[in-house]
Amino acid sequence: MKKFIAIFFLMLLAANTAVVPVYGLEAGSLQSRSAVLINADDGQVLFEKNMSDKMAPASITKIMLLLLISEKMDNGEIKLEQELTISENAAGMGGSQIYLEAYETQTVENMLKAISMRSANDASVAMAEFMYGSVEGCVKAMNDRAKELGMNNTHFVNVTGLPEPEHLTTAYDIALMTKELLKYDYVNEYMLTWMDSVYVGKEKDSEQVLVNTNRLINNYEGLLAGKTGFTNEAKYCLSAAAKRNDTTLIAVVLGSDTTKIRFAEIQKILNEGFANYKNIIFHSKGDVIRTSPVYCGVNDDFNVVSKENIYYFTESNCKAEDFNLEYVLEENLKAPLSKDVAIGKAVLYKDGKMLGEYKLYPEKDIEKENFFKFYLNNVLENIIR
């Protein structure tokens, strides 16, 4: 049975699962043991093969580490230029590495390059210790964040992806954490850089040339991010996100027998998605949708915006003209108004059926008119007349 289907289609406040018609990609046509394709905007599953099977993820594990780093950078806790001291524990990590020396200093930026491009285990442990004081503390944070994201079949034991019997996740869960990472752009540059280098050692006298393990960088249009992984237990793995026009998709393959298979199959999955589906964006986040009158405000009216894209993910043959948007705003709005409190909604329809609702907000805080100024401008003006 063809499985290019849509499950878990939640249009914001709508709770019903919608199924998009099937297309030509069949699970049986893939050699990878597990795979999934999702829409990055709402998490809708478009294709799956054993997406909930618990498997070893190898270095794809580091997507969660990169997410935690990105979140700490976003709230100002760490910066690219900050320096950290490499511990004996970090320097002693095996597997993929950049051969850091114990007690040398490095910058956060160099560690991000090493993790994103070479998948360096020593750099990963160094960042885990830098952020949380220990690898164990970082692993706890990774598992806590996984639960928050709904990664219900994931359990991390380390920050590197090196084999551990209980270090398991699923293709679907990997897609979820990749989706979350796309909210930030702190590591995009490094994930999409083909070649760079860092100098390591206490004297910084050893150049480590970094060649990205993700060869999609050179041959896949619209690639946004990607992370490879390999161990003998996990085999070849890959998570990749790509964008074309207004559509962003995330594909994951696990358990491929060769690196050639993982790259070929992830491109096949992404291509099928872009060929058959698209996002129609009616209003982008922050666009002025309309104006609304307001009483007792500094100004007589204000701009109305949405804090998210107003969009619909659908089959590629649909057009924007097939849909209707209705705007419902509260009546007799009175200042003050907060930009964080909704004052209405946009409702999306197709063929008379409601597809979703999107909250609308003032573009900025609306201050109440000063009473004395209001009196001078209005009451006295009328008296003078």
Rank of each mutant, 00 (worst) to 15 (best):
Glu136Met: 08
Glu207Gln: 15
Lys113Glu: 13
Leu210Pro: 04
Lys179Pro: 08
Asp173Gly: 02
Arg145Pro: 04
Leu182Asp: 11
Phe130Cys: 04
Ser124Trp: 01
His167Phe: 00
Glu148Met: 04
Asn188Thr: 15
Arg145Leu: 10
Met127Lys: 06
Glu189Ala: 14
Glu166Trp: 00
Gln97Gly: 06
Asn110Tyr: 06
Thr213Val: 08
Gly137Arg: 07
Asn152Cys: 04
Pro163Met: 00
Lys179Trp: 13
Thr169Gln: 09
Lys147Gly: 01
Glu129Pro: 02
Met191Asp: 03
Asn214Phe: 04
Thr193Gly: 06
Glu207Ala: 13
Ala123Cys: 05
Ala91Asn: 11
Gln208Cys: 14
Ala123Asn: 10
Glu83Lys: 11
Met142Glu: 09
Val159Ile: 09
Thr178Tyr: 05
Pro163His: 05
Ala175Tyr: 12
Ala120His: 03
Ser119Glu: 04
Val125Asn: 06
Ala123His: 05
Ala175Asp: 01
Asn153Glu: 09
Ala128Val: 01
Thr105Met: 14
Asn121Arg: 10
Ala91Ser: 12
Val139Thr: 05
Gly150Ala: 01
Tyr190Lys: 04
Asn219Met: 12
Val187Trp: 02
Gly137Trp: 01
Gln97Ser: 09
His167Arg: 00
Glu129Ile: 00
Met131Ile: 05
Met195Thr: 14
Val135Met: 08
Tyr132Asn: 07
Ser87Ile: 14
Met151Glu: 02
Asn218Glu: 13
Ser116His: 09
Thr170Leu: 07
Thr105Gly: 00
Arg145Ser: 04
Met191Trp: 15
Glu180Leu: 09
Gly133Tyr: 09
Tyr103Met: 08
Glu83Met: 15
Asn212His: 02
Met195Lys: 11
Glu180Val: 12
Lys147Met: 12
Asn153Ser: 15
Glu129Phe: 02
Leu176Ala: 05
Thr178Asp: 08
Lys140Glu: 14
His167Glu: 02
Leu192Phe: 04
Leu168Tyr: 12
Tyr103Trp: 15
Ala126Asn: 03
Val139Leu: 03
Leu112Asp: 10
Trp194Met: 15
Thr105Asp: 11
Lys113Gly: 06
Asn89Ala: 11
His155Asn: 02
Glu88Ala: 14
Ser206Val: 13
Arg118Lys: 13
Ala175Cys: 09
Gly137Tyr: 01
Leu182Gly: 14
Glu129Val: 02
Glu221Val: 12
Ala120Leu: 03
Asn188Ala: 07
Val125Gly: 03
Ser134Val: 06
Val198Leu: 14
Ile98Ser: 07
Met117Ile: 13
Leu182Pro: 08
Leu100Cys: 10
Lys113Tyr: 09
Ser134Ile: 08
Tyr99Trp: 15
Leu149Tyr: 07
Ala146Val: 03
Asn110Lys: 10
Leu176Thr: 00
Glu189Met: 12
Leu176Lys: 10
Glu109Arg: 15
Asn218Ile: 08
Phe130Arg: 07
Glu148Lys: 14
Ser96Met: 15
Ala146Ser: 10
Val200Gln: 06
Leu192Asn: 15
